[in-house]
């Protein structure tokens, strides 16, 4: 019965896939690009248009943190409100005393533990690379932070949550890191504004590169290395905040008492 169902399903999907494969001949994308896309592609990295460009070769990050930066700020706010709600639901349900951890008895086998010890620094390195190169290559703060958050989650599952707590990775510290990230994002949004205030010139909140009516802005290069103004700082602080927020949520989830 189950086999018949599966065969039926596969034939159905295959026929639809076949249809789609042949239908592509009538749906071939043309080489013409819409005007909006042309605007983004021309201005995302173009030193010859100093008042329009973002100086970031990664158009997606430029759109996410510069062209529509306010949207992303509110998305970040929504994510943190969700985390705060999760913490509020679990409050007083968990105990966070650092208990003594008897080595070797908790968690999975030695093979899994050794592999985890080798791979978790690699995961963190890849996440940091995705986050900090977000203005050059595909990726960005959220992607890097989510990748980093996989490492503590694997450690929690393989070693148990008490192992993380004995390594002094507590929810208080994660809360501190997350607050640091949030404060950093907030300061980055008004950094150009503060520069303008101190120099006595017109600048805007959430400004990145110099504009026509606000010729002061953030530098696109720092010591010869491209940082694309605010984009690098946004990615850094977002990565910190996302990674610590996810880690905190996992610790709280695993610490909640079973008997309630």
């Amino acid at each position: 019965m189950k086999l018949v169902e599966l065969v039926l399903l596969v034939t159905l999907i295959l026929s639809i896939a076949l249809l789609l494969t042949f239908a592509y001949m009538y749906l071939t994308p043309t080489s013409e690009i819409r005007n909006l896309a042309v605007f983004y592609l021309v201005t995302t990295y173009n030193p010859q248009l100093p008042f329009y460009t973002v100086n970031s070769p990664e158009a997606v990050t430029a759109i996410v943190w510069d062209y529509r930066g306010l949207d992303t700020l509110f998305e970040t706010a929504v994510f943190y409100l969700a985390l705060i709600a999760a913490l509020a639901l679990a409050r007083k349900l968990y105990v966070e005393a650092t208990p003594e951890f008897n080595k070797g008895n908790e968690g999975l086998s030695v093979i899994v533990k050794t592999v985890t010890k080798i791979t978790s620094p690699m995961i963190i390195a890849v996440g940091a690379s995705i986050g900090l190169h977000g203005h050059l290559t595909p990726g960005g703060g959220f992607q890097g932070g989510a990748t980093i958050a996989v490492a503590p989650m694997i450690i929690i599952i393989v070693f148990s949550v008490l192992y993380l707590l004995t390594k002094r990775v507590t929810t208080e510290k994660m809360l501190l890191l997350r607050s640091l990230g949030l404060i950093g994002i907030g300061l980055t949004t008004i950094s150009a504004f503060i520069i303008g205030l101190t120099a006595g010139r017109t600048t805007y909140v959430f400004q990145n590169m110099p504009k026509f009516d606000a010729p002061l802005g953030l530098p696109d290069k720092l010591n010869g290395v491209l940082i694309s103004g605010t984009l690098w700082f946004f990615n850094l602080f977002e990565m910190l905040a996302v990674a610590s927020g996810f880690t905190m949520a996992f610790i709280v989830l695993m610490l909640v008492k079973k008997e309630g």
């Binding site: 990726g139 958050a149 996989v150 989650m153 694997i154």
Partner: peptide, 11 residues
């Protein structure tokens, strides 16, 4: 892809 992999396969 970079959002989808850690969130949907890891987290």
């Amino acid at each position: 892809v970079l959002v989808y992999l850690p969130v949907a396969v890891g987290l």
